[in-house]
Structure formats: structure tokens, C-alpha cells
Amino acid sequence: MTTTAPARRTAAAPTSTPRPKPRRRDGLAGWGFFAPFGVLFAVFMLWPIGHGIYLSFTDQSLTGSGGGFIGFANYLEAFGEAEMWQSIGNTLWFTLLSTVPLVVIALIMALLVEQGLPGKWLWRLAFFMPYLLASTVVSLIWIWLFTPQLGAINTVLTGIGLPAQPWLQDPSLSMVSIVIATVWWTVGFNFLLYIAAIQGIPEQHYEAASLDGAGKWRQLFSITLPQLAPTTVVVVILQVLASLKVFDQIYQMMNQVVTPSTQSAIVYIFDAGFTGYRFGYASAVSYIFFAVVLLVSLVQFRITARKGA
């Protein structure tokens, strides 16, 4: 589905010759050029995909024991496991909680920066720099900020007379805390995509509008935002896919001991496979989760397709 986005921008390349027709059969060269990628792709992508399906029907253990064929037992067990469903629920919840601010704040940032205020490079640096940090670094920094007694956030809160919060310790707060850190970390990526899109809006639109006497707000709502709609679709789709795969921040910020209220699907798979040794079961959950990801993508595709129509 990643191939469905508007292709209208692809036109402008050095020169746009019509797509070259392959002239003759150059089988050997073709395979030769494809081979390095093809071999790696087959060995480290296709084989694991296939082997994972096989594993999901066995009771294979990390320790090497087991491995016998057990039919759909893993799938049946997973379907009946409340904790698995909760982890998928948590993942969807995290996706919702994070996607909204990650898109809205990124858009606001991009719109503000593109107002032409001085210090453009500084704004870009500020908003984008966190994206360059490894998840581990982000987690270390935010664990420190969230620390109950010594943390900067609680120090500020108590300083202005608000109660300190057990950010990561309280099961009802920890997911929100992780979302806050995540927004800080990755909003810069969407911000850049919006910047690129805003700069791609043809100048003439604005010139025509201001000749018609349209004010700044009018221009924002009648030109900029509609022009950004296709970008927003892509940004939302990419963001949802990225958020569904959340593992790092949760695993790290919960001090690697994940509570039921923050356990994401990937964390659950990791736990089942590597802490519980159950490779067969974890494989089955992997494919169930993959099906969920496909389903979410399909729903998104449907929605955007209908909007487009």
C-alpha cells in the first residue's frame, strides 16, 4: 500500500524522457545486477518469513528443545490469551495517542517555521535534532526527566505548586509519559516532510490569492492546508505504521520490566520468545500481529480512497 500515494510530484527529474523500453533480453546482466540484493533478500527476508510460519506450528524453544509439529495449538492459545489481546489493544492505543500529536504538532511547527521568521536553521535544528538520537539515549534522558524525586519535570511541577506525578511508575500514567517522550523524539521527521511539502506549493497560488485580497488566514485554509492534504495522508499512514511497531521506548523506559498497561505487541512477542523461550508461540503471535497491521493498513487505505473519490 505504500505504493499508492500520489505520484504527481515524481514528474520533475533532470529531464523527463518517457520510460525507457527494455530493448533486448539481457537475462544474464539482469540477474547479475539483481543477485547481490536477491541473495540477501532471499536469505534474510524470504526465508525467515517462510520459516516463521513453519515455526508457528511447532513448539520450538529458544533452548533448542521441542520443535515438533503441533498444528494450530499456538494460534488457538494466542487467541484465548487475554494478555496478547491487551498487548495489541495497548499498541493500537499507543498508535492513536501518538499519531495525533505527531501529525498536528509537526504541521504547526512546519507552518510556523515557513512563515519566514528569522532563524530558520535554529528552528529546524531544535525540532529535528531529537530524531537523530538513538532510542536508548531518548529513554535515558526521559527516565531522568521523569524521575519521581529528582526529576526536572516534577521539580518544576512542585515549584509552581502542582503535585508531583509518578510518571513512569503509575500504570495509568506510564503510557502517556511514553507518548510524551515519543512525540518529542520523532516529531521532527514529520516536521521535515511537511516543510518539504509546503515548499512544494507553487508560489502562484499565493500570488493569485493575495491579488484577490485574501488575508493570511484565508490563504492558510484555502491554499496551504488543502495543498497539504495529500502529504497529510502519507504522513498519517507512515506514522501509524511506525507507531504500531513500537518497542524500544516502552521496553527501555519501563526499565525492561513491562507492566500489563504498557506492553505493546512487539514487547509481548519479545517476551514470549526470548524471556519465555517459546519461539513457536512467539512466531504465531508475530503473524497474528502482522495480520493486524495489514488490517489497519487496509482500513486506512479504504478511508483515504473514499476521501479521494
Binding site: 529458544l62 526499565n255 525492561q256 526470548f274 523461550y277
Partner: peptide, 11 residues
């Protein structure tokens, strides 16, 4: 790190 992470890594 103490606890589950340690045992996971050791295994």
C-alpha cells in the same frame, strides 16, 4: 540490569 532483562540476556 537486574531481573528479567538479565535472565533474558543470559539465556
Amino acid at each position: 540490569t537486574w531481573g528479567p532483562p538479565y535472565y533474558t540476556k543470559l539465556a
